[in-house]
Amino acid sequence: MILTGNDAQKIALLKSLLDHLFKIKDLGQLKFFLGLEVTRLRKGIFLNQRKYTLELLDVVDLLGFKSSNTPMDPQIKLNSKESHLLEDIFIFRRLIGQLIYLTNTRPDIHFVVNHLSQFLSASTMTHYQAVLRVLRYLKGNPGWGFFFPSDSLLQLKDFHDLDWASCLETYRSVNSFCMFLGDSLISWRSKKQHTISRFSSEAEYRALASATCEIQRLSYLLRDLHIVP
């Protein structure tokens, strides 16, 4: 459980109340929470999943592989129409599951993980190679994560875009957005749209609508935290 606030006394009071009711173990300053490592610096807060990444890389033997600079090869178009399916599909599925949890602090692999997770039912060696490529990319920089600067403004910013009809099998478009609170990235997504858009402007409207929903959600959340952006 994480507690936060500007009043140290009230936090201590809540802790003692909870201890009285449930028996708690006070772990002090937030450092490690569900695989997320939190480091407090004078200039802000740093968040990463270095330990989780290294453990993930440990399971797959990558000793002989060079690290890669990019998570994906733009030349390779993945599809689910190949016939030679992987014999051990569970390794692939487990890796994808672990990578999905890693996207909590790694938006840079979000798109490729989302793309690969669409082939869980018909995964082939090509897909497995693509997963290895992601792992090789992670090997190069396992400590990357988020930095939330302390001098950032509390202002919501949204960037969104889409790739029209980019899915080769369904011809649906892929949405993406990044929401910032000042300079800190707080929400992001890359997702295939539900319906086919016949015009790129139609797809743009859909992307705009889903970004608006997210802005609405974040503004409710900020209101609940008594923050006026």
């Binding site: 459980m1 994480i2 936060t4 449930f22 028996k23 708690i24 807060i45 403004l153 000042g182 935290l225």
Partner: peptide, 23 residues
């Protein structure tokens, strides 16, 4: 957490022992 950084809030964590036995 981005807000905690700008507002300089304290961040503390705790663990509830045998939480599921309390329900």
């Amino acid at each position: 957490m981005a807000i905690a950084a700008t507002e300089n809030w304290l961040l503390e964590q705790l663990y509830v022992k045998n939480a599921f036995l309390d329900g």
